[in-house]
Design a protein around this nucleic acid. Structure first.
Lengths: 106, 106
DNA sequence: TATAAGCGCAACTAATCGGTTTCGCAAATT
DNA sequence: AATTTGCGAAACCGATTAGTTGCGCTTATA
């Protein structure tokens, strides 16, 4: 079963779950209360998030607290990096153009 | 038809297409040559990428050149920003801890 | 010890996805 | 003018997905 971080964040509900537990660890029931869906549906999303290590389980008696593995989010940032270089270059080129115009005005 | 940027980058082939045309504008055929798939399959991916405005078409006679809309990539960066704050805070907290340990050693 | 609560797992369903094949259109080429 | 080339769109298919329902297990609570 292919599970990667990009597929994990593709689903809007999963992104919402990530946003929720980023603030504090939560149980599946507590998470489900925030959506118009069942606990089981949330549970499935949590399974996917856990499988790609975006989320970690903390067992507390019969409750399971889910926390965000913020480190994993950096992988997206790392992927974006190659494109960040491009848009920064373009920005600098624009900057150069603006500078040239400024000089010409003088 | 819900088309968002996160769903667009979920597919590995689409990420590869993005990486390809980031370097230079390409036609569907040229793109397809880089994969073990048909032009039509690539065409479908390009349609999805175009629909969510990650990619732009440039008509040149009967050819269509596809270019990356790098600005749109920033939206992912923007989304990541809320989490970047978290991991930077954690990093700083770790930094504080290390500093405290250092001081205690003295 | 019986009951309730919190949870994951498995089976099922409707919808969506990625891909192929076939088609038709418009722009080049002969 | 006939043919080739580049392309998108539609029809179709198998695989995957998100969700529901129905379990059974474990841990609290009465």
């Amino acid at each position: 079963m292919r599970r990667d971080i990009f597929q994990a964040i593709a689903d809007p509900t999963r992104r919402a779950i990530i946003a929720l537990i980023a603030l504090q660890a939560m149980t599946p029931n507590a998470i489900a209360e925030n959506f118009n869906t069942t606990r089981q549906a949330v549970s499935k999303h949590l399974r996917i998030l856990t499988e790609c290590e975006l989320v970690k389980q903390e067992f507390q008696g019969r409750e399971i607290l889910y926390t965000l593995e913020i480190e994993k989010m950096k992988e997206i940032d790392k992927w974006l990096d190659q494109y960040r270089k491009i848009w920064e270059t373009r920005f600098n080129q624009l900057d150069d153009i603006l500078l040239t115009i400024k000089k010409e005005k003088k």
